[in-house]
């Protein structure tokens, strides 16, 4: 227990936490692997951009960066049909309620990518005089992947999607075509 508290204090828990053990008591190894691979390769994001980082998120879906190569271009407008929520921008206290509602409306299994410094830790708003901005979206909802940058380059968000795939399946490239460095 002491170690656990110490881990929380030092932030070491984030690295040591292993999500692969959760789930059913009875395991179907092959089916689980297949399911995980399928989930990792069709991450449908929600059409949901709060601030300027959303512009970079849009460009990930466009020609030069093209998230559709990894099956992640299906931006669903309804939270009921989306798998990953990309929090792209500053979450202020007025917006917080909406963000939490949208997160709760998504069906399981669901993931969250915090995109940009504001969503990661408050960014330029993490100052003493701040009274409106929530410093990091992880104070509201569990975040799986943090993509820092102000705003992050589209490549960085793509990398974030890869990291999420890695987190889901345990491998960097679940399907070994077109390997990228």
């Amino acid at each position: 227990m002491e170690k656990f508290i110490e881990n929380i204090k030092t932030g070491a828990l984030r690295e040591t936490q292993d999500y692969s053990d959760q789930g059913l008591v009875l395991k179907f190894a092959q089916a689980e692997t297949l399911l995980k691979h399928c989930q990792a390769n069709s991450l449908w994001p929600m059409t949901f951009g709060i601030a300027c980082c959303a512009i970079e998120m849009m460009s990930v879906g466009m020609a030069r960066f093209d998230a559709s190569r990894y099956g992640a271009e299906v931006f669903r407008p309804s939270p009921r049909q989306s798998d990953v929520m990309i929090v792209a921008g500053t979450v202020n206290k007025k917006m917080a309620e909406t963000v939490v509602t949208l997160y709760e409306q998504m069906p399981e299994p669901k993931w969250v990518i915090a995109m940009g410094n504001c969503a990661v830790s408050g960014g330029p708003f993490a100052i003493e005089e701040n009274y409106t901005v929530i410093e990091g979206v992880d104070k509201l909802i569990p975040v799986d992947v943090y993509v820092p940058g102000c705003p992050p380059r589209p490549e960085a968000l793509l990398e974030g999607i890869f990291k999420l795939q890695e987190k889901i399946t345990g491998k960097r490239h679940p399907f070994p075509q077109n390997r990228h460095p």
Binding site: C38, S42, A63, S68, R69, Y70, G71, V74, Q177, N178
Partner: peptide, 23 residues
């Protein structure tokens, strides 16, 4: 739109729809 479309799953993303269905 000058993109490639699904590329990663199967040859030129042929299995993309099947994978979406399983998901």
């Amino acid at each position: 739109q000058f993109r490639l479309g699904p590329m990663e799953v199967g040859w030129h993303g042929l299995l993309q729809t099947a994978i979406d269905a399983v998901k």
